[in-house]
């Protein structure tokens, strides 16, 4: 019995604690006065169809909230994307209206979508966003993977400190972290001053308001999202597999490519999705670091809404962005579900 309990590893890891707690539970079960006949009944009450009323109520509260505040809004965006801009409150034409109280008039305007296809700015912004987000995701992976790997291979106490250090910036203001780079990257900023002081360059390099600045901003802001899922898979990795590969004569690099990398695929996919999807629609980073020349779709939509006050076009841009992202989002969710089920089967 005592071999099951390992207080040193019990904390953060999942495995040993259930075994230990189960024995405690068994003990209380054994000590308790006649619980046996109740056992079944209570299970039926909690899990069975009889308990469904209370259960249904519990499910209904968050369900309704999400339906109302998360799902319905998309229907409304879709609806307004078919309206036309008009001066007034709200600033769009009604889709459905009564004419002379006798018949219903439904007007669908495709002008918002027509803009999207005709004006090359939108197409360029979409393609640009995808390209920038993909590049930044790869950069994030290249930096995040060795970091996650290094953390997973540290001793447990250092590991916790390092993890805390990874998560900490995530808890500080996103806006401020982006802002910090303005002071570093601008023409008379800290980096240019330092480089000129060292005599490496003679005149400042234009870094702010370039795509390079956007890459830095995205990698910097989303790095924790890449490291954490990678760390979770790498930490679970069975070290003996690597040892076996090496014992059989595999070079370290080859062992990494053939064993570690394939086994950490779930973490790679999750991390890349967590970085790629939100950065496609990123607004703050391209606005503050990218300047006027770089077009990203989140910024285009923001300007459409706040500067042009054109709600229908902004909605059409949003719907198009959603269509673009729906495949990766659904794919990501599927993948998460499969991984969860695998993990559940693995632990049983």
């Amino acid at each position: 019995m005592s071999t099951e309990l390992d207080p040193l590893t019990g904390g953060a890891t999942v495995s040993p604690a259930p075994g230990a707690a189960a024995t405690v539970a068994e003990q209380t079960k054994a000590d308790a006065p006649p619980p046996r006949p109740k056992h079944r009944l209570y299970r039926v009450l909690f899990r069975g169809p009889l308990a469904l009323r209370g259960r249904g109520l519990v499910i209904a509260i968050p369900y309704l909230w999400l339906l109302l505040f998360f799902l319905t809004p998309f229907a409304i965006v879709l609806k307004i994307s078919f309206a036309e801009f008009m001066v007034g409150v709200p600033p769009y034409t009604p889709l459905v209206e009564w004419v002379d109280d006798t018949y219903l008039k439904i007007t669908l305007a495709f002008s918002g979508y027509k803009y999207l296809l005709e004006d090359s700015m939108y197409v360029n912004a979409y393609l640009g966003s995808l390209r920038i987000a993909a590049t930044a995701t790869v950069l994030c992976l290249l930096l995040g993977y060795p970091m996650a790997y290094g953390i997973a291979r540290s001793s447990p106490s250092t590991r916790n400190v390092l993890l805390l250090l990874v998560v900490l910036p995530f808890w500080t203001s996103f806006l401020i972290r982006v802002y910090a780079w303005i002071g570093i990257l601008k023409n008379n900023g800290l980096l240019n001053n330092a480089l000129m002081g060292l005599g490496i360059i003679n005149e400042p390099i234009e870094m702010l308001n370039t795509e390079f600045a956007i890459y830095i901003g995205i990698v910097y802001s989303y790095l924790p999202f890449m490291i954490l899922p990678l760390y979770t898979t790498l930490e679970k990795l069975d070290g003996s597999l690597l040892e076996a590969a090496m014992d059989l004569g595999c070079r370290p690099w080859k062992a990494f490519l053939k064993v570690t990398l394939p086994l950490s695929m779930p973490g790679i996919v999750a991390g890349c999705m967590l970085v790629f999807i939100p950065s496609v629609g990123e607004f703050v980073i391209p606005d503050l670091l990218g300047g006027a020349s770089t077009l990203m779709i989140g910024k285009v939509m923001w300007n459409e809404f706040f500067q042009n006050r054109d709600w229908p076009t902004a909605s059409a841009v949003a719907i198009a962005m959603l269509i673009l992202l729906v495949l990766p989002i659904v794919g990501f969710q599927r993948y998460q579900l499969v991984q969860e089920e695998k993990a559940r089967e693995g632990s049983k």
Partner: peptide, 19 residues
């Protein structure tokens, strides 16, 4: 539940405002 985690903020913001 998982969609808001990755949904670009501009979309969430616009859609809930229109609601």
């Amino acid at each position: 539940i998982t969609a808001p985690l990755v949904m670009p903020e501009v979309i969430t913001g616009l859609s809930i405002l229109l609601l």
